[in-house]
Design a protein around this nucleic acid. Sequence first.
DNA 1: TATAATACGTCAGCAATATTGACTTTCCAA
DNA 2: TTGGAAAGTCAATATTGCTGACGTATTATA
Lengths: 172, 172
Amino acid sequence: MNDSLLNRSRKRDALLFLTDDQLLQGIELMYFAYKGFTSDPDKILQNHTYGRAHHRAIHFINRHKGLKVNDLLDILGITKQSLNRVLRQLVDDGLVESRVGVKDKRERNLYLTEAGTALDRELSDAQRARMRKAYRAAGPDAVQGFRIVLEQIMDNETLHHLRRLEKDRTND
Amino acid sequence: MNDSLLNRSRKRDALLFLTDDQLLQGIELMYFAYKGFTSDPDKILQNHTYGRAHHRAIHFINRHKGLKVNDLLDILGITKQSLNRVLRQLVDDGLVESRVGVKDKRERNLYLTEAGTALDRELSDAQRARMRKAYRAAGPDAVQGFRIVLEQIMDNETLHHLRRLEKDRTND
DNA sequence: TATAATACGTCAGCAATATTGACTTTCCAA
DNA sequence: TTGGAAAGTCAATATTGCTGACGTATTATA
């Protein structure tokens, strides 16, 4: 009797994280956390008259040095016209270098210049500081859960894409 | 001797989630997860010629029925001019009702109409389905960690703001 | 009661980021 | 040598944010 009550209670608790209200809370957490997540770099970008799009391009060019324009297009999931506007600015401003491909001369390999690397570091420092603070406060187990859930939230193709990039990256 | 080596190794492992590379991976997870997180509603919104801003307004008006325009401005962190454009559309289209405040006639209390509630449900269903799937696949412990880290990532003021709203909401 | 402050709404102009569509140049590959 | 891929470009449009300047109704205060 008591066992049955206890079991039912445990079952309810175990499933509580799937109620609509819990899901809606999760949705709001995502919204507010993302807002905080981008706020520090956004402040820095303002001083350079750049925006989120520039940060994204700089970030991925740094993480995957020498990547092709098409790769960046795939990662960001925007049109080449949108990317081109941003990329042209960064190249004109001397933050990004676009080198003709070695194997295939149609391709362009993207690299950060010294100035580009400096801005990346500035942006990355701010964003990593926030993440480090959050990770430290939350602890390793929470961080593990955080990662698992985020991977589940994103599109499967994106996850595979990311895994492939991660593999390429460490094999450099 | 062996103990000391082992301990150092364990210490390193315990802190591994704080290396720059781990932090950068976390940053990319946030980026890609948020993208997936908004993709389903965005598809729906396109059919209605609405955007993310409309979704956000609808979501929070539904979650905090009768909230004042100023409250919504605080939550969203945008200017009243930006919000007003979106809000005016929603009111004109008959999705949102703006009622004169009872206690203070300067205030406007916002409510979803029947049509507004229907669109909210459509958007919310899609977003909750993705979250439910992710939560279910990740399990309760991971979800707990997910929540803890996200709360740490956002601004402290935002968190307090959210907690206050959550309290108001359940006290309705 | 006269005046200040608040809540809301609105107009105009500007900027960043995204879109679609059309077109060119360069280069690789069948 | 011809077709297609990779990259770059021009033009037009939409969404969402911003600043600055006003106006109106209502409440609070001196």
